[in-house]
């Protein structure tokens, strides 16, 4: 059956022209990564004197930079990595738990004020988070959470967008299951935790990736909260190596390559939920 279908496709010459165009585009999109990876093996003196360009002396390439990156200032790079990972983990676990709770409540029950909650959530989705950072900074400072990882995670634990998404996915769940469990004397939270959460696995996967990636790449808020060098996240730590007095390319380039690795791994294992996690907004509102 499948073979037959494949045989049917008759490609026009236009398809081949378009393919060649797309291959050129793909090369353009990949080339910065190529230059990054190649650059990470080049001595930093080469990068300082030549920048990244077509002229590459492959014979001078070595793994030295990767060693330097780990040794730099007593392994501060690994601390940044740990910091990024722990913030990502905390934010994703808390975000999934609280947002799915609220989304479940909004999608599963009919109660007074439900539509008000939903409208409030939609309004928050349209509000730029950036304008709230000054009072949030004061708030975090008053709670003595400045320069802590929890301070970074605190305001991001309940995400309006994730609530909305979970609500959408809960609406499609069979409510009879909940009723049956209720007759058997199951409490409301246990219905959610033991029956509904396993049914929402796909939504959890997509939102988990959405949340993890947002946390991994977040800059503005951690930049404000974190102060001591050891606690910086990767993006901020890496950009702190770019100074007007010179850039530490021997740490920067391998550091940047290694910072992409976790996301790459997640992508290759969970491609499907990854793509749906990033393009989640196309659900009908």
């Amino acid at each position: 059956m499948r073979k037959k279908e494949k045989m049917k496709i008759r490609r026009k010459p236009a398809d081949y022209i378009l393919m060649i165009f797309m291959i050129c585009m793909a090369c353009i999109f990949l080339s910065p990564l190529y230059f990054l990876v190649v650059g990470s093996f080049r001595p930093s003196s080469d990068l300082i004197s030549y920048g990244l360009g077509l002229r590459i002396d492959f014979s001078r390439m070595s793994l030295d930079n990767y060693v330097i990156a780990f040794q730099y200032r007593n392994g501060v790079y690994l601390k940044w990595y740990f910091s990024s990972l722990s913030i990502m983990l905390m934010q994703t676990v808390c975000g999934l738990f609280f947002s799915s709770l609220v989304g479940y409540g909004l999608g599963m029950y009919k109660f007074k004020g439900r539509s008000l909650f939903l409208v409030m959530d939609l309004v928050l989705m349209m509000l730029p988070f950036e304008i709230l950072i000054l009072p949030l900074y004061q708030l975090v400072a008053n709670m003595k959470l400045l320069d802590t990882r929890f301070g970074v995670v605190m305001p991001l634990m309940v995400a309006p967008f994730m609530i909305f998404f979970f609500r959408q996915s809960v609406i499609g769940l069979p409510k009879e299951l909940a009723d049956a469990a209720r007759i058997d004397g199951c409490g409301e939270f246990r219905i959610y935790w033991n029956i509904m959460v396993p049914l929402m696995r796909a939504a959890f996967g997509a939102m988990g990736i959405f949340c993890a990636m947002g946390s991994w790449n977040n800059v503005l808020w951690p930049l404000i909260v974190l102060q001591s060098n050891d606690k910086l996240t990767l993006p901020i730590g890496l950009s702190s190596l770019l100074t007007p007095f010179g850039n530490a390319y021997d740490v920067l380039m391998p550091g940047a390559v290694l910072a992409i690795v976790p996301i790459m791994i997640v992508f290759f294992f969970f491609q499907k939920s990854f793509v749906s996690g990033l393009t989640i907004g196309s659900i009908k509102g």
Partner: peptide
Amino acid sequence: IFVPVLTSTIIAGIIFRLLFGSLETSL
């Protein structure tokens, strides 16, 4: 086309700073 999505903006910045550097030999 999707692969650059997996990087972060800061990393993109690091690469493009070098590719668009002021040196004669930058890309």
